[in-house]
Amino acid sequence: MTSKESPAPQQSDPGLAQGWCTLAALHGRIQTHIERVLQAAHGLSVREFSVLDVLSRQHTGEGGHLRMQQLAEAVVLSQSATTRLVNRLEERSLLVRYLCPPDRRGIYTDVTGAGRKLLDQARPTHDSALREALEKANKRLELSPLVSAVRSLAKAAETND
């Protein structure tokens, strides 16, 4: 193929596109429900909860903290969105940032005592809202197989723990 030739067009795969749309619909329904419940009960967004949760699970003593880039990857946000989110959580005294001792250019992020307390209070609310959203989604024929897949993944994760 010369540089002027274009690659052969890919065949359309409507089933793949429909599967992706169904997965996105399930995600949107779950996230919207959890957002509403967490916000009402604890003043936390889903993203804020995710940041606190990821950081609390990563903290295993010295070296268990996350750099901002690692945190952004873990919660699937851009670095700038993660920075804004961490700023808001830090203003609420739920997170703290500090310089990485071996590399003074790096910044670690960690959950404060107040952040851990709020997370401990919010985790049962989050989990209950997740179960509720999955139960509701499971009643929809097109979403039921995805709900089954999520539950299977949860069981596999429990087995690996």
Rank of each mutant, 00 (worst) to 15 (best):
A122G: 01
V75K: 00
L89H: 02
K117M: 11
S128F: 07
A114M: 14
V150M: 10
F49W: 13
T125F: 05
A41E: 06
V147Y: 04
S12G: 06
H65L: 03
Y108L: 15
E142T: 12
T22I: 15
D110K: 08
S56E: 12
H126T: 04
N138H: 12
E142V: 15
V150G: 06
L77Y: 12
A24T: 09
V96G: 04
V46A: 08
A122T: 00
R47H: 09
T83M: 11
L99E: 05
M1F: 12
L26P: 05
H27W: 11
L99N: 04
P124D: 02
P7L: 11
A114I: 09
S93H: 10
H126Q: 02
L141Q: 13
L118C: 03
D103R: 13
A17F: 10
W20Y: 11
L26A: 02
A81L: 13
Q79A: 10
G61Q: 06
S3M: 11
M68D: 01
R36K: 12
P101G: 08
S50W: 09
A129P: 08
A72F: 11
K155I: 12
S78P: 10
L89G: 05
G15D: 04
A25F: 09
Q11I: 14
N87T: 14
R92I: 03
V147W: 08
V96E: 09
V111F: 10
A129N: 03
V150H: 10
E91S: 13
A156I: 09
D161H: 14
R97G: 02
T112H: 02
E73H: 14
G43C: 08
L153S: 06
Q69N: 08
G19N: 10
L23K: 13
Q39F: 12
A157I: 14
I34V: 15
L71K: 14
Q18N: 05
E90D: 11
L16G: 04
G61K: 12
L26I: 08
C100V: 08
R97D: 00
R151P: 05
P102W: 11
A156T: 08
S148H: 12
R57A: 02
H27A: 07
V46H: 06
T125A: 04
D127C: 07
Q10I: 14
A114L: 14
H27K: 15
H27Y: 15
G28V: 01
Q70L: 07
A157F: 09
D110E: 07
S128L: 02
P14R: 00
G15E: 05
V111K: 00
L153T: 01
A137M: 04
L26K: 07
E135T: 12
V51A: 07
P101L: 09
Q10K: 13
I30S: 07
R116F: 12
E132D: 11
H65V: 08
R151S: 00
K4G: 01
V150N: 06
G43Y: 03
S45I: 10
T109S: 13
Q121L: 15
D53C: 04
R47E: 03
T60N: 06
K136G: 01
Q70C: 02
D13Y: 03
R88D: 01
M68G: 03
T60Y: 00
L99K: 10
R67W: 04
G106T: 03
E91W: 07
R105L: 05
